[in-house]
Design a protein around this nucleic acid. Sequence first.
DNA 1: GGTCATTTGTTCGTATGTATA
DNA 2: GTATACATACGAACAAATGAC
Lengths: 229, 229
Amino acid sequence: MLKKTHRVSLVEQVSSQMEDLIESGHWAIGNRLPPEMELMKTFDVSRNTLREAIQALVHAGLLETKQGSGTIVKSKSALEAVLHRQVEKSNILKILEVRLALEREAAQLAAKRRNEKDIKDMNHFIGMCRLAAQEGDLELFLKADIQFHQMMVKAAHNQMLFDLYSHITDPLISSIRNIMILDKNFDYENEIHTDLFEAIKQKSEHHAIRYVNNYINEFREKITLIQED
Amino acid sequence: MLKKTHRVSLVEQVSSQMEDLIESGHWAIGNRLPPEMELMKTFDVSRNTLREAIQALVHAGLLETKQGSGTIVKSKSALEAVLHRQVEKSNILKILEVRLALEREAAQLAAKRRNEKDIKDMNHFIGMCRLAAQEGDLELFLKADIQFHQMMVKAAHNQMLFDLYSHITDPLISSIRNIMILDKNFDYENEIHTDLFEAIKQKSEHHAIRYVNNYINEFREKITLIQED
DNA sequence: GGTCATTTGTTCGTATGTATA
DNA sequence: GTATACATACGAACAAATGAC
């Protein structure tokens, strides 16, 4: 008899429905939402209620409204939006430290849990790295390198680790690019993580950790050198 | 001529002001906000505008409204709220993995950056651990142990690392307690991280990492043993 | 148990600013 | 420049839940 669901406010009902539409990709990032008049009919609520729901998602970072233009989808999840803001107001080097922390753990877990599909995916991006290295295409190399790391974290089979890593990495990409470009001694061959890949493939946690530790320390030195400029 | 920054909506202005009041502790967690009529006068906006601002913070997880009763502060920051939700819908063991990832990085950074106050704080909780061990007080021991780890992460001097660690640890405490209680071979002396503390005190990154790796592996074994029950 | 003031929930109406065609 | 569509903001009214007396 007592319906607890009835005690959820209309605004909450509408905003969580909209959140689902965004998270499911039905309203994709960059797309414009239908006008308010239409949404009022869709959700069967008044203008103010609808607006409160929209504003809630705007504040959460999922939507962005522009007066006279419309409402567009800006971000896919609350976690992504929150971390994006957090990254923006923090020191880039400190964020990189967090990213490396997650990466190190991921390498160990990946060596333990990777399946055949993980190996295939990682191998694909290693190949792209090699191709980019041969052609000296830095942009392509960075793109493939980042996706390789992404796949490695995915191979750790820990959703939260993957979410945190992804949402921290995205807003860092331009910074990583700058670090790489400013590196005078940039050596493509040395940057291809073939050994790390092999260690994970052979399920050798020990070698994976050792390799990722070396890689991280090199990266740290690179950062501090650039910071001193 | 026209300042583009001036085009921040009233709702945004009000909600960010309220967010500041919450984050600064002026509106503490659990406290009730002044009624809408009062807040309307405080911020000098209409009811609809105020309510949109409140709903935004409700959706972000900072506030909770109850019809007929009032609005209370539920969480201190958006990051805390979103991580809390994330932790709730995830596997506890997977969350522990993320926590350990952050802890490992923190140990290394703490050995590099700790100052005298950090040492003092950590020493205080190490002392509490010893006291609790002597008296066989498991509750006190866990409390002190968690605070010791918290201080170690703080000594890493990376705000985002600390925030992530804290907000992940809080909802995990009861789980950690259960793990410890279920451990038949629980040995107080062995659980006091004196060696880790000494390594950080001596600024020996190498020893700090080695110790924390051992500690983490032991903790992992403990978890898998219990999981098999 | 009931009444009543308080507080939030929901809706409607109106006016004005702003971007796009 | 005008018309249109949309966003912003305010005010007023009633409904529903809560808590105190």
